[in-house]
Amino acid sequence: MLEVSALRWMLTIGLILGLLALDLGLAAARPHVVKFREAAISSILYIAVAIVFGLVFAMQVGWDYGAEYFAGYIVEKSLSIDNLFVFVIIMSTFAVPEKYQQKVLIFGIALALVMRAIFIALGAALLQLFSFMFLIFGLILIVTAVQLYRHRNADPDVQDNVLVRVARRTLTVTKDYEGGRMFTRIAGRRAVTPLFIVLLAIGSTDLLFALDSIPAIFGITAEPYIVFTANAFALLGLRALYFLVKGLLDRLVYLSTGLALILAFIGVKLVLHWGHGLDGRVPEISTNTSLIVIAVILTVTTTASLIKVRRDPTARAHAGSLTAEKPSNPGPTG
């Protein structure tokens, strides 16, 4: 069991909030279209910070815990990229002007961090109280993986989002973005702008990804501190990463397949861990093995995606869906 002092928690949370405030504060203070160079530098810096943190953490508490952090970080970063894919779909569906996209991302990332912190606390408490929760989490991930693989060539229908539909039925929505505001007035009546509807879609997406990502990270480690830091550092810099990769996401035609395999693998790992607690003869999957398997899956799917697109330039990636597949745009898919 990893012993984490109150001081370490305070310093870590302070570091993460400071980096988050810096990233999102600068974006809010100076709304602008983010260019490739700016996005690349910011993304590299935040990934470097996450790596340095992991190395310092491993040197302080041991490389076993360090391996858990890096495995968790890779899993959460992979899921975050799929989250970005859905963000791109939402921005495109609602035709969000580029100058307002940073504002949407600020809201989405901050909300994602809050939701994951809540689910981390809840998940940790459940695992401490009930050992069978490892089985439940494992089965959830396996079912999610199967659904994601079945509908890997679909995109989520953000227009069919429950919150979006309710808001459109019950609220007055303006046609224009009204200078990036969320609320305005029409003929003396309070109304919401399309930006408010976009934020509802982003928020519900964050909730779904939090529900998937927390069981996934607990499949790597049961240490709340590692779960929190891996999630937090995976989310930091997501704003810049969005602008860096949004033009490249269409090339990752096997991304959904890779994520489905990773979720299934972690689900099996959780089920075996639960079984090992009942009978020591049931094998367990080590953290180092998990790290290798996850890295291999990501490497193979990324390489295969690039080869596929090179051979067939019309191939387009999809974010994947957990619900019944809707017909997508014609054209070859991965």
Rank of each mutant, 00 (worst) to 15 (best):
A124H: 08
V143M: 11
N153I: 09
N161V: 11
I142S: 06
V146W: 14
R116M: 05
A145T: 09
L122D: 08
L148G: 04
F137Y: 11
L163N: 02
G138T: 07
L111C: 07
A154P: 06
L148H: 09
F130N: 13
M115N: 09
G138V: 07
M133S: 12
Q159R: 08
R152V: 06
D160N: 10
I120T: 15
L122H: 05
P156E: 07
L105N: 00
F137H: 01
Q128M: 13
V104S: 10
V114I: 15
L105C: 05
I120G: 11
Y149R: 09
I106T: 01
I118H: 00
V158I: 06
P156V: 02
H151Y: 15
Y149G: 03
V162H: 03
L113W: 02
L122V: 15
L122T: 14
L127Q: 03
F132H: 15
V143Q: 10
L141K: 04
N161R: 06
F107V: 02
V164M: 02
F132V: 09
L126T: 12
V143T: 09
L126G: 09
I118R: 04
R116Q: 06
L163D: 00
L126A: 14
P156S: 00
V164R: 01
L105F: 10
Q159H: 08
I140D: 04
L127Y: 15
A121D: 07
G138L: 10
F107Q: 09
A121H: 06
V158S: 07
Y149N: 08
V162S: 00
V164D: 00
V162K: 05
L126W: 08
F130M: 15
R150V: 08
F137V: 02
A124Y: 07
I106V: 04
L163W: 11
R116Y: 02
I118K: 03
L126P: 05
L127A: 06
V166R: 01
Q147D: 01
F107G: 04
F119S: 01
